[in-house]
């Protein structure tokens, strides 16, 4: 199969969908990861749920769409990636199921034990996905042991190598900072202040882990190769670090929306850095570079890509428009005192 422009378009869209997922679900997963540190009193806990209630479900659709787009545009990557990462993916799904149910059911029955159990489900279901996603993408960046037939020669524990674990921790901390920024913005009073203080700590850890990850990527991946070839791309990692750094001044000035947007830029920049470094690979083989799955050897036919492009051109702007409207509609502050 020879290359065509639609393969590149769909690689970019694929990266955009994942980035959108990290940025959007990132804050509600992150807020859930910091749940026990943020919410001590019942009113605070309730306020956290209220701050995420209208958004988490729509945010998770980005994951479904990223999965669906992988299937539609790069079926071979979808097939090999999902079957190779079998255990990690199912663990991710179970976590998300537990979490969704926890958010939905927690406040529909008024008994302390009921709430305590769903709170635990919410926390576990929020902290596991970023860790698993971080581990998965760190491994995708450095390549996984797949042979020429795309058969995976490893196990769940193959993925838990130092670079993979570093990726997992990085995702947990940057999502947690992002989530705290959201809570700082969406609530007021003590809870908002507590979230801002926590965000500073998480951001500091994020910066250290991101630095280590960038360096680790130099040692154990080929991601930087594209940056040596095209230094212009360096704007992505610079943007990422600048975004994370800008969280501090915004928090100090108590501009929490600014801090939230800064963490969104930090995550987007990081994600863009990873995907731009991966290009044109989608799932490198750690056994032999000739067995890498690339946009050229794993994509759908030209017709399918063209149809999908038309669908995306029509519907993505519509989706973005009403998503933005919904965020604006629900951007009011939630008080942790009332109720």
């Amino acid at each position: 199969m020879e290359g065509n422009i639609y393969q590149i378009i769909w690689f970019v869209l694929w990266a955009v969908l994942w980035t959108g997922y990290f940025v959007l679900d990132g804050f509600d997963l992150g807020a859930g990861s910091a749940f026990y540190l943020l919410g001590k009193k019942e009113e605070e806990k309730k306020a956290i749920y209220q701050a995420l209630g209208p958004f988490w479900d729509g945010n998770e659709v980005w994951l479904i769409t990223a999965g669906g787009a992988t299937f539609a545009a790069f079926p071979k990557t979808y097939a090999v990636m999902f079957s190779s990462l079998y255990s990690a993916l199912l663990l991710l799904l179970f976590s998300l199921i537990l979490r969704g149910v926890s958010i939905e059911y927690r406040n529909k029955y008024d008994k302390p034990l009921w709430k305590t159990l769903w709170d635990l489900g919410f926390f576990l279901g929020s902290i596991l996905p970023p860790f698993l996603l971080g581990v998965a993408f760190a491994n995708i960046f450095q390549g996984i042991p797949i042979d020429e037939k795309g058969i995976y020669h490893g196990s769940l524990f193959t993925l838990l190598n130092p670079f993979g674990i570093l990726g997992g921790l990085l995702f947990v901390f940057c999502f947690a900072a992002h989530g705290c920024n959201w809570i700082a913005f969406k609530t007021n009073g003590e809870l908002s202040e507590k979230a801002a203080t926590l965000s500073k700590k998480f951001t500091a850890v994020t910066l250290i882990l991101a630095g280590l990850f960038f360096f680790g990527a130099y040692l154990s991946t080929n991601l930087w190769q594209n940056y040596f070839n095209c230094p212009l791309l360096l704007v992505f990692p610079v943007l990422s670090l600048a975004g994370f750094l800008m969280i501090f001044p915004f928090l100090i000035k108590k501009n929490f929306l600014g801090a939230f947007l800064a963490s969104a830029v930090g995550i987007s920049g990081f994600s863009a850095w990873g995907f731009a470094g991966l290009f044109p690979n989608m799932l490198p083989s750690s056994l032999n570079p000739a067995w890498n799955l690339t946009i050229y050897n794993s994509s759908s036919s030209l017709l399918t890509l063209q149809i999908m492009t038309v669908v995306a051109l029509i519907f993505v702007p519509i989706v973005l428009a009403y998503t933005f409207w919904a965020y604006k509609t629900f951007s009011f502050k939630i008080s942790s005192k009332e109720n």
Binding site: G67, T70, Y78, F82, F315
Partner: peptide, 28 residues
Amino acid sequence: EFQFGTNWRYYSEYVGDVFGPLLAIEAT
């Protein structure tokens, strides 16, 4: 949606070009 990939890999590979878009469009 994810189980097509995790458990039915050769199905996904063989028919993804036709079947995949329907799922992606549904989500969108």
